[in-house]
Amino acid sequence: MAFAAFGQNAGPSTVAPTKSGRVAWILLLPGLMYLGLFFLTPLFSLIITSLQVPDASGEIGRYQYGFAIENYWLVIESYWPHIIRSFAYALAATVLALLISYPLAYFIGVKARRRPLLQGLMLTLVIAPFFISFLLRTIAWKQIFSNESWIVNSLQSSGLLASDQYLVGTPFMVIFGLTYAFIPFMTLPIYSTLERLDIRYLEAGADLYAGPATTFRKITLPLSMPGIISGTLLTFIPIAGDYVNASRDFLGSTETAMIGNVVETNYLQINDYPAASALSVLLMLAILLLVTFYVKRSGTDDLL
């Protein structure tokens, strides 16, 4: 499991012998070149573009190099509701995914230990949705919750929805779609830590008169923390930048546009490349800050 490596750096690392320094650098070279070419270059180009100014022609989509730092203020001023909405949706979907995934991961990793067949089957089921295209799955949800579907009809007839209210296009639907899409990214890291949980700790807890709740709070939860941290990071970061679920063509509407949709519209429709780039840079900085703060607070500094 690729995620296991992500959650598994608890012990102090042994310092590599200094002699092999040059070899290490040579071995690192392909990775560094990759980063330079495919991360730093686009990042540089992105930052340059975000500072461009419109050229004299006044035609749509024509910009020249400049140093328009005010582009950043302009996009914050115009799109702050979308920025807040993106992080609110990401937070809601991450919390929901955690609430759904934790019991699931606990069952697969701890309760199903003695039945390897069941464990394998359940793990496969968690991963199975990846075999189908993400877009197709999102469109399927749109069909399932469409205006004429039985779900909407029965909600309307039972009075939970007014007769002119529908599900697709509401924030509920977008958060639902986001949660659904990212559940595997939450389940797998938590599973990988819970799978190694030593049951004898739990027995010891019971022997010392701790109730199940206390045992969970004092033993299971702290031991599964690395999994929770990596799981929440793996869901929160991509959700904040997601532009599919919230798009008008899928589960969203004009009320649910997230920052990804704003970037897409600015780039492809309005041809306002500086604004799109400035928003992308802001999104990246905001996530970087939030994640740094989160990891520091949660005491798993080794992740950084």
């Binding site: 035609e59 749509i60 115009s78 600015n266 429709q269 041809n271």
Partner: peptide, 19 residues
């Protein structure tokens, strides 16, 4: 004209993004 197109498109797209 170029500037009209810029203004019209931006205003229209802004509505599609909601507030």
């Amino acid at each position: 004209s170029g500037s009209e197109e810029q203004k019209f498109t931006a205003a229209f797209q802004k509505i599609l993004l909601g507030a």
